[in-house]
Amino acid sequence: MKNTRVSQLPPSPGGLLNRALHAFSTAGKTYGAEWYILLVGLFIVVFMIFMTAFPWLFTSFNPSDQDAGPQLAAPGGIHLMGTDNLGRDIWARMVWGAQTILGVAFAAALISSLIGIPLGLLSGFVGGPLDRVLSLTMDSVYSFPGLILAIAFAAMMGPGVVNITLAVAVIYIPTYYRLVRGQTISIREELYVEAAQVLGAKRWTILGRYIFPNVIATTVVVFSVNIADAIMTEAALSYIGLGLPAGMPDWGMDLSMGKKFLPSGSWWLITFPGMMIMTLALGFTLLGEGLAEILNPKLLER
């Protein structure tokens, strides 16, 4: 799904590190609810990343082991979340599947930001025909339903980690581009930047010293929210059957396999993968949300 909040976000004044340190010292009192939102988000994200890094600490089952248990065993006993129709342990598939979805979402967000940010900087800073052409292209992609575009690409390119990552990445490039371009233009017009220009500062210096640091602070927040969106898009593509080939545990695919068991009552096949997708996406959303509100005094005024 397309990022919906980013466009809402007012520009950050920068100084990320200082603010973060300051925030940590006086947080609870100053920020109230926002601080707890941030903490919950942070907890989920750190937990999931830890799980991704050390999956074997969380389960002794191999996610592909078809003899882990009987087929379609209900949750309980040694199978915390039950087993699927092939007899694989679902909790193990959830634990190992985190790698897949997180990996794809992170890589996709990284690719879109690495393309979107420089293009946005360039467009906003240089202006002119280049800006117009780029803006038009990006707006075209942005205003088109992102998922439909991703479906079209993924279906055409076929399954595979690289293909699905690219299909997800493409639709989020405009998100970064639009944000960065807007900020660049507004910063470029600030008095102190104009002053620097008049004093003969080189263009690259202005870009590097004044614009880039400011832009980066905001994109960190956006990045977090964007990962949440990328997670949902990856899951959606896998659910439709456009994701990865078998052999890699994948939440979205497990969910679409579980769908067949809806009327026969194997609820655990449907419930858990969806819950994992939701939790992971929620973690990154809350983290981004908390960061945005805390790093941005303008938002806090209300």
């Binding site: 919906t4 949440a228 949902m232 899951a235 959606a236 659910y239 969910l255 769908k259 809806l262 449907i270 419930t271 993968p273 969806g274 997708i277 939701m278 996406a281 929620l282 959303t285």
Partner: peptide, 12 residues
């Protein structure tokens, strides 16, 4: 609800 995948909501 924003983080609930719409297809999962449907299944539930």
């Amino acid at each position: 609800v924003y983080c609930i995948p719409v297809f999962w909501m449907g299944l539930i």
